[in-house]
């Protein structure tokens, strides 16, 4: 490329500057019209952008979506379950097989893992390492729409992940009731509730001091281990059971068990299993919107 190209004329204008010839009233009208679609669909545009970005790690997404349920269900459902069922009998674990017991928990865990992944680094990146949020906001997109778009894109990853997981569960014979299919929605709700709570924190992070690794180690992992995943919460000492009560994973898992094999529990508890993650979603969503809007308005 040489400076000599300065004298060359562009063959066709790449953009339409003739709009500059409009009157002030027309310019104002054009702006009002220009804001209509972004105001209405801005959240979806953000989601579209994020989903396009996910293509760069699509292979990993597909491999983990199929590989994870195979590995977990094989290890726990065939390996550990054969040991437990041999000792307790095929229906000796709360009246059902160990595989049927553990599968709804694994489904919810898969959703939580994806949500945690997508609500930590992508949030930090959007403000800091790959600051696309500022670019979106320079276009007609608002802070609230950025958050909504992120949530939609996370759901767009969680729901297929759960659907694939559920199909593998069916193949392993881990679902007793057709209602079990609703477990996909329950797991997705569980995942996004955790994701939104994490986002309300990661959206505040100005500098990476290992906070995200801490979330995984001291948030997600203990939740996975102590949410009635591998054994009933009641089998844990009472002083550890509170982890389950506040854990959306426990609520999602218990609801999944009700749907999957008709685990019995009081109605109020079933209602709580739905209301609690919804409340977390609301809190996390509003808090994240507030933080993101504030950070963008420098």
């Amino acid at each position: 490329m040489s400076i000599g190209q300065r004298s060359g004329a562009a063959a066709t204008p790449a953009f339409d500057a003739s709009a500059s010839a409009t009157t002030p009233a027309e310019a104002k009208e054009l702006a009002m019209v220009g804001g209509v679609k972004p105001r209405r669909y801005g959240s979806w545009y953000v989601a579209e952008h994020r989903i396009r970005s996910m293509r760069s790690y699509l292979q990993t997404i597909v491999a983990t979506s199929i590989g994870n349920p195979l590995v977990y269900l094989f290890a726990l459902g065939v390996g550990l379950a054969s040991l437990i069922d041999t000792n307790l009998g095929p229906t000796g674990f709360n009246g059902i097989s160990y595989l049927a017991f553990v599968a709804p928990a694994l489904l919810c865990t898969a959703a939580v893992t994806v949500a945690a992944e997508e609500s930590t680094y992508p949030m930090m990146m959007g403000f800091k390492w790959n600051p696309i949020f500022y670019g979106m906001n320079a276009a007609p997109i608002t802070g609230n729409q950025i958050v909504n778009g992120m949530v939609i894109s996370i759901l767009a990853r969680i729901i297929p992940t759960c659907a694939i997981y559920f199909v593998v569960m069916l193949l392993f014979g881990a679902v007793a009731s057709p209602w079990g299919a609703l477990g996909i929605l329950v797991a997705s709700l569980t995942g996004i509730s955790v994701g939104l709570v994490i986002m309300s924190y990661t959206s505040r992070i100005e500098e990476d001091k290992g906070q995200m690794a801490m979330i995984m180690r001291f948030g997600i992992t203990p939740m996975f281990l102590f949410s009635g995943t591998f054994f009933s919460l009641g089998q844990m000492p009472i002083y550890l059971q509170w982890i389950g009560w506040i854990s959306p994973l426990w609520h999602g898992t218990e609801l999944g068990r009700v749907l999957s094999y008709g685990a019995s529990e009081p109605t109020w508890l079933t209602v709580l299993h739905i209301a609690y993650p919804l409340a977390l979603c609301w809190f996390g969503w509003k808090a994240t919107q507030r933080v993101v809007t504030r950070r963008l308005n420098k």
Binding site: P24, A25, A27, K28, L30, A31, M32, G34, G35, P38, R39, G42, Y134, G135, A138, A139, P140, I141, T142
Partner: peptide, 20 residues
């Protein structure tokens, strides 16, 4: 363009190109 950006942020931004 005759609009207050505090009130009409998305409308104003729909008419801008920004090179940060």
């Amino acid at each position: 363009l005759g609009l207050d950006p505090n009130e009409h942020g998305p409308e104003v931004r729909s008419q801008l190109g920004v090179v940060p």
